[in-house]
Structures are given as C-alpha cells and as structure tokens.
C-alpha cells in the first residue's frame, strides 16, 4: 500500500500538475477555424513556449528540485522540455475531447509545415499513450520522472537527481499496481512510453531544422 509520505508526495505533484496549465486564451486559439500554414506555425510555437513555462512552474513544485545545483536545474529542464511537452499534449488527444476538437488539432498540426516524417511518429505516440488511459496521478508522476532523468546532457550531479527520481518511480510502480490490478505489465508499458518519447526528441530536433528551411 502507499505510505503516508508517498500519498503526500503524490498529492503535491498532482496539485502542481493541475495548477499549472496552458492559459485558456492560448488553447482557445487552437480551436478557431481556418488558419494558414504560417499562422499554424506561429500558433504551435506560441503553445510550445507556453508549455515550457508551464513545465518550469510545475517543476518548481517537485520536492528537492530547487535545492539542486542551479545549472543542473537548467540542464534537466532543457533536456526534458520536448519530452514533457509531448507527454502533456498526448493527454489532450487521449482525454475525452468534445466532438471534433481532436480532429481540428490534428489538422492544425498536419497543416503547419511539419514534415510527414515527424507527424507519423508523433501521432503513433499519441495513440499509444491514449490506449493506456492513464489516470491523472500517473500522468503527473510520469512527467516528474521524465524531468528528473539523471543522464541528461550537462547534468553534473547525477546522484542528486537519482535521489529525487527514485521515490517517484517507486510510487508510480505502486500506483500502477493499485490502479491496474488486472494488468501486471502496466508499469512496464508506462516506462516503454518514456523510451518512445526519447525517440521523439530526435525527430523533434530534425523537425525544427526542416521547419526553418521551409
């Protein structure tokens, strides 16, 4: 069972996850009709920027994060921003969206000058995350675990990061057993998504370059 401390940790992470969301006025624009490729491009850039700001606000609430070395904080955030962004946006596609919203979002991403080579793996990821039907606690913890990945580039004190990540992984494992008793492989499937996320990192870097060329 989940200990008192673990429960407190979970509540704190979920509360921070819910508190820091992309502002309504930004997401509302996503649903407005007929945008040109250029406007889609600018809109996606605006949302990506907002997601990074939301990511930092969320991360500040992760116990121990602000006591890490300042440059390591930057390295962790920089190294995980893209993954955290896709993990979060995946939930938009898997949550019960009002009729037609998902299609509009998908159309917007497809019509923003991003090459097909990147869009296919991105939507495969969204689909595989959607099939997991993650509960909110799992989404918040998985995001925190993604950010606290010790082997990001330029992280100096990896052990300090590991000490923060480890209890989160333990807690997520217990949560998966409690939430998905009939699926013993569920935790492993969640971690599998993190591996898939890392490949998106690579595609994202290439996508940015091709986007700029277009």
């Amino acid at each position: 069972a989940i200990t008192k401390e673990q429960d407190a940790l979970m509540k704190l992470i979920v509360e921070a996850y819910n508190k820091h969301q992309i502002p309504q006025d930004v997401t509302k624009k996503l649903l407005q009709e007929q945008y040109s490729t250029e406007e889609n491009f600018l809109l996606l850039t605006e949302i990506a920027t907002s997601q990074v700001q939301v990511l930092v606000e969320f991360t500040k609430n992760i116990p121990g994060f602000l006591s890490l070395d300042h440059e390591d904080q930057i390295a962790l955030l920089k190294g995980s921003a893209v993954e955290a962004m896709f993990l979060r946006s995946a939930q938009v596609f898997s949550r019960k969206m009002p009729k037609g919203h998902t299609e509009v979002l998908e159309e917007r991403i497809r019509k923003s000058g991003i090459s097909e080579e990147f869009i296919t793996p991105l939507f495969n990821f969204y689909k595989s995350v959607g099939e997991l039907h993650m509960v909110q606690e799992e989404q918040a913890l998985l995001t925190a675990i993604t950010i606290l990945t010790p082997d990001r580039p330029y992280v100096k004190d990896q052990q300090a990061v590991e000490r923060l990540q480890e209890p989160m992984v333990e807690l997520l494992k217990k949560l998966c057993v409690l939430q998905h008793p009939q699926e013993p492989q569920y935790f492993a499937r969640l971690l599998g998504r993190l591996t898939e996320l890392r490949t998106l990192n690579h595609y994202h870097a290439e996508m940015l370059t091709s986007w700029r060329v277009n």
Partner: peptide, 21 residues
C-alpha cells in the same frame, strides 16, 4: 540553433520568476 537558445532563455526566465514572487 536559435530555437534551443530560445528554449534556455525561456527556462532561465521562468526559473528566475520565483525571485520576484
């Protein structure tokens, strides 16, 4: 690339935010 620089600036600015609060 410029976008990465942008990313780091956004992160540094948002992190510093807690000094103003």
């Amino acid at each position: 690339p410029a976008s990465n620089l942008g990313l780091e600036d956004i992160i540094r600015k948002a992190l510093m935010g807690n000094l103003e609060e």
